[in-house]
Amino acid sequence: MIEVADLVKKYGSTTAVDGLSFTVKPGRVTGFLGPNGAGKSTTMRMVVGLDRPTAGRALVNGRPFREHRAPLGVAGVLLEARSVHRGRSARTHLLGLARTHGLPDGRVGEVLEQAGIASVARRRAGAFSLGMGQRLGIAAALLGDPAVVILDEPVNGLDPDGVLWVRTLIRELAADGRTVLVSSHLMSEMAVTADHLVIVGGGRLLADTTVDDLIARVELGEVTVRTPDAERLGRRLVALGARVTSPAEGLLTVTGVRAEEIGATAAGENLVLHELTPRRASLEQAYMELTKEVAA
């Protein structure tokens, strides 16, 4: 569980995070979404005690992260910026973290295996590709078998295999009952992995919602109707104040009245309907709509 309350971070005169409050619950994947520069990384760094908040607080499993006695077992973190010394091997890098907690050396072998980099474990991390570095970062996040997993842009630089691996891993971690917070600036990525969305823009909270609710929030107000009596129904609907176009024979696109009214009208006129579909926004459209308001 991550609880963020009224979090503020200022760098001089610029405000990176501006009064952010949200909760990340265990057992599901929470997508942390926003355009670049929205304050996602800064928020994540404050959650794990790397950056000191200007105001507000962030709790991990009920306490400020710094107060935990076994931090690696509480939260595992992958930060967007590389956090590995280029002169050490993947294995020594992980040993240097594991030994602070008295974790057995065997645990390092396990996460190396899990991340698919066991074969390059003794190579200097400086020679790693972006994707291998990303896998090493994820291995480090999993080291302490943490209850909370925080991943900042985890699919960055990964090949398609890697992307698939991360998606599966994220879902498994949540299914285990862990708290999973994953950031991305790509809605499409979140659409396939996240159950819940925390959307930020300009350091402020724009939405704290489920994927379905977010789509429903953006009303396109367009209804597709298929009927053999397109002309009659069209006239009736125009009389009701709707705007009606007919993109094809027997097909109507209606705006200005709701699907329920269209159905009732058709029933009143004894007209047959083959289809009556309110058009839904795509997740991508809903996200664009939401972040557009902030940019304006």
Partner: peptide
């Protein structure tokens, strides 16, 4: 540690 960014990993292990 600061130059390579390792310090961020180190500080999350020992906050």
């Amino acid at each position: 540690e600061y130059g390579s960014g390792l310090v961020r990993a180190t500080f999350t292990a020992v906050p």
